[in-house]
Nucleic acid binder design. Structure first.
Lengths: 205, 205
DNA sequence: TTGACTATTGCACCAAAGTACAATTTTTCG
DNA sequence: CGAAAAATTGTACTTTGGTGCAATAGTCAA
């Protein structure tokens, strides 16, 4: 993994060095705009600094990079701000090296890094909303009146499984899977498994 | 890290064994209540099972442990439910070993594990901003250095197009589309067009 | 210029996906 | 119980997806 640490001075903290020994360190004023940027840019936000004065410029210069903010004074509000600005994570400047590596792992795989307290608040909100408008029984019959079995097959297909894998998972013959799929295609209007996947995952329509 | 896998049978899936070779496997009916429990308990929720019938008992018996749910049929709603019940994570039963180890790392350090699609919903506006930024950046760095042409093909595949349709759209032979796809599969690690679609659309994790 | 990389295409071939036609078993419900 | 619907499976077939091998041609940088 290719890392770059952006700060207003080049002196690194020990925990950064331990977490990412191979990272390059650059001044904010000397960010490379062209070429292939690093996989992950770690941008330090020092105490008292406003993220709005630092992040936009950085993100504009390197739109292809994933930016994680290292905040001297982290908080849930700040995290929300930097995510809204386009960063993919926000954590404490003085986090342990192991934590930083963990962040790198998650972010490197396309994830977002959010602190636990904020996440729990968000989860709490969503749980309340979902509890009200998600009758549990719905999931069984949605998508144009699929039967329970057909819905099982549809979900597995949507997850990328092959017919053989689905057959093994459900302990039925591969031919039966195909029969279900034919029925599913008919009911949903999908042309093939890929378009079904898009429908199930809500990417279509 | 001390692991315990809880299921209704003791036969482990291959990916679990690879991810946690030293884990102990126990039946749900034989959970050790006293003494020092494992650092992380992985509780499998098989297809059709209700988390409400499994989790509360497990959490009551071992209040000190961190429980991660391995769901045969994962989903955002289920994730919210199990987190609300007291679990610290929820992921796919058939997740790759590397993913499971990542989950163990996050959970072991006090984090919560949430799938990307749910997290993005939770973060809401911030995620929407990100969703628009991602495709641009991914063409250059993410998705393992695809060429411009390959990226065009990948996007069309992700949209549900057939090889013939892609060929017509790009005014090239269908054979050429296949050639690009072979290269794309190699670079991205996708097994077929459906899994590529999931990767491009960010449904994977 | 030469080497590395990308784009393009053909031919042959195998594997997976999907359809047509037909049959049996299980479940559900009045 | 008996009818209807859903689930299951088989054989055979067509189509699409994907790979291996090989060749031609353009671009870009050392």
């Amino acid at each position: 993994m290719n890392h770059e640490i952006v700060d207003i001075e080049t002196k690194m903290l020990d925990n950064w060095r331990k977490a990412m020994p191979s990272a390059s360190i650059v001044l904010r004023s000397a960010i490379s705009s062209g070429g292939h940027g690093p996989a992950i840019r770690w941008c330090r936000l020092r105490a008292g600094e406003k993220q709005a004065e630092v992040l936009p410029g950085l993100l504009a210069l390197a739109p292809e990079g994933r930016v994680v903010v290292l905040a001297d004074e982290p908080g849930d509000a700040l995290t929300l701000e930097v995510l809204a600005a386009g960063a993919v994570g926000c954590c404490n400047t003085h986090a342990a090296p192991e934590v930083l590596q963990q962040v790198a792992l998650v972010v490197g795989n396309g994830g977002l890094w959010v602190g636990q307290s904020l996440l729990q608040q968000l989860v709490g909100n969503a749980a309340r909303v979902l509890a009200q408008r998600q009758p549990v029984g719905e999931s069984a019959t949605m998508l144009n009146g699929l039967s329970e079995r057909e819905w099982q097959v549809a979900k597995l297909v949507a997850g990328g499984a092959s017919n053989k894998e689905i057959a093994d998972r459900l302990s039925i013959a591969e031919r039966t899977v195909k029969a279900h799929l034919t029925a599913i295609f008919e009911k949903t209007g999908a042309r093939d498994r890929l378009q079904l996947s898009l429908k199930v995952n809500g990417m279509n329509r």
